[in-house]
């Protein structure tokens, strides 16, 4: 049997989820059975990433925001609007996380894309530039 690529699996799952056929429960059982049968359970995380990618292409964008401090509701709303505009999404589901290690700024991650405006990244870029010189 030809090995199905992760992309093909993800595309099938994403399309089925949007169409609602089969039901979410049935679809996930089907996927789980397939992964166990083909001994590909270790690829689960990557398949989920691919599903998110396909869903984002169809306008359903899962967004994760990382910041050093808790963001206000207004800021979150503004960020959601930004993501909606940047990705042309019809639906944005936002989740946020406080991570003091980023020192400051914000990191917005959507499937396959990212906007990293954290201080820690700017320091990393600066460090690399100094190393090159």
């Amino acid at each position: 049997m030809t090995r199905l690529s992760r992309r093909s699996i993800a595309e099938y799952v994403a399309t089925s989820l949007i169409e609602g056929k089969p039901s979410k429960k049935a679809l996930l059982s089907e996927l789980a059975a397939f992964l166990i049968d083909t001994q590909r359970t270790d690829e689960l995380d990557l398949i989920v990433r691919d599903i998110e990618y396909y869903l984002a292409e169809k306008g359903y964008v899962r967004t994760n925001i990382v910041s050093a401090f808790d963001l206000s509701a207004e800021t979150k709303k503004a960020l959601e609007a930004f993501v909606k505009k940047a990705t042309k999404a019809t639906q944005v589901s936002l989740s946020s996380m406080v991570e003091p290690a980023v020192l400051g700024g914000v990191k917005i991650s959507v499937p396959g894309r990212e906007l990293d405006q954290t201080i820690v990244r700017q320091l990393t870029v600066l460090k690399t530039r100094f190393k090159k010189v």
Binding site: R49, A86, T87, I108, S109, V110, G112, R113, E114, L115, D116, Q117
Partner: peptide, 10 residues
């Protein structure tokens, strides 16, 4: 490219 979403991988 500030204020733009970069394509990223892992």
């Amino acid at each position: 490219t500030k204020k733009q979403l970069d394509e990223v991988g892992v």
